[in-house]
């Protein structure tokens, strides 16, 4: 029993334990410090729901063996394009939201496929290349945003040309899922719509991972040599996984945007992948294994910490900007831990 406990802790990892402990500590600190507990908890729940799909993108790509998806920005860009097209057509409400998803699909499918092709050629260095390809695409898109033809004047920058940095979604589909059927339990607001959408996505991914393709993808990711010997086309499986991840990334940013109320173009998606990667790792994923549970648990702990640490810290250390610092240390710490562990196994 003792052995088992120890093994469990080793598996779970020190960094992860610290993070979960930290989360519990601040979650308890909120009511203890007489902060506005219900509002803060509601905020935390909203952030969990809105980030969920972005974190879910990690499941197929990590399972198929292409490592943590540091090129999440590619999927995000596709989502932004979809959203832009739908807003440019002035589509609002549910039509607008689902049109955005629909318009993003062709982009994310093609980009995901191309990105998959690239990743198949650079096996072994996926993560670094993904990061910088992501960065490069973002900076290239910055120029594109400047020149993209826009009919809808709301989207245009007030001065000069090009798209606004942040587009307010109030007139389009802000909170379309959040406000779908919010449940309020004694002051605690749960954005049930967004949660339902997240669970729907998780369920679809679950189904996919338990189909034949999903199983073979898992085998291909875990042991490419074995997969090849068993007649599985490893490269094709990787392309499937990467494309699926890109498509989810596009949907993920749209879910994020509707909750956030803004659509952020230009350089803002640059660091989003790190938070998503950190969340899934916190949830217990490792380089080649990631499950729906890891996603839900991870996003809960990670976003919980980010949302709740700020007000708590402000009581303890007034005027400090601790939330960002906590995000940096925890997210990068957990990634470093995963890298160290991943290489150690070899």
């Amino acid at each position: 029993m003792k052995m088992k406990c120890r093994q469990f802790f080793e598996e779970f990892g020190v960094t992860r334990m610290i993070a979960v402990g930290f989360f519990l500590a601040i979650a308890i600190a909120v009511p203890v410090l007489h902060l506005n507990t219900l509002t803060l908890y509601s905020q935390a729940l909203t952030r969990m729901a809105m980030n969920g799909v972005l974190v879910l993108t990690m499941v197929p790509i990590m399972v198929c063996g292409a490592g943590m998806n540091f090129a999440l920005p590619i999927g995000i860009i596709c989502g932004l394009i979809g959203g832009l097209i739908s807003m440019n057509m002035n589509l609002q409400g549910f039509t607008g939201f689902f049109a955005s998803i629909l318009f993003s699909l062709p982009f994310s499918l093609v980009m995901g496929y191309l990105y998959g092709l690239l990743m198949n050629r650079v096996k072994g260095s996926e993560m670094m290349i993904a990061t910088y390809v992501g960065f490069a695409v973002i900076s290239a898109m910055c120029i594109v945003w400047l020149f993209v033809p826009i009919d809808n004047l709301v989207l245009r920058m007030q001065m000069g040309r090009g798209l606004r940095k942040d587009v307010v979604l109030t007139d389009f589909w802000a909170g379309i899922l959040d406000d779908l059927c919010p449940v309020t339990i004694g002051g605690l607001t749960i954005p049930l719509g967004t949660f339902l959408f997240l669970f729907l996505m998780c369920f679809l991914v679950y189904l996919y991972m338990h189909s034949k393709t999903g199983i073979m993808m898992r085998a291909a990711g875990q042991n490419p040599g074995l997969a090849a010997a068993n007649g599985i086309n490893v490269d094709r499986m990787r392309i499937w996984g990467i494309t699926l991840s890109t498509v989810l990334g596009a949907i993920g940013i749209l879910v994020y945007a509707q909750s956030y109320g803004f659509m952020q173009f230009y350089e803002s998606p640059k660091m989003m992948s790190f938070s998503a990667v950190a969340a899934v790792l916190l949830g217990g994923a490792s380089n080649k294994r990631a499950s729906i549970f890891n996603v839900i648990f991870g996003v809960m702990v990670f976003q919980g910490i980010l949302t709740l640490s700020m007000p708590v810290a402000n009581v303890l250390l007034p005027e400090s900007n601790i939330s960002d610092i906590v995000r940096m240390i925890i997210s990068n710490g957990i990634i470093l831990y995963a890298l160290g562990k991943g290489s150690g196994k070899k």
């Binding site: 034949k212 199983i215 898992r218 074995l226 068993n230 007649g231 294994r289």
Partner: peptide, 26 residues
């Protein structure tokens, strides 16, 4: 294969999955 640990097993999947994988695929 002679390379049991290399290409013979999915070390992080169940024995069940390891045994059935090939029949599932083919």
């Amino acid at each position: 294969s002679e390379d049991r640990r290399g290409i013979g097993l999915l070390l992080d999947e169940s024995i069940r999955m390891n045994i059935c994988l090939l029949a599932m695929q083919i």
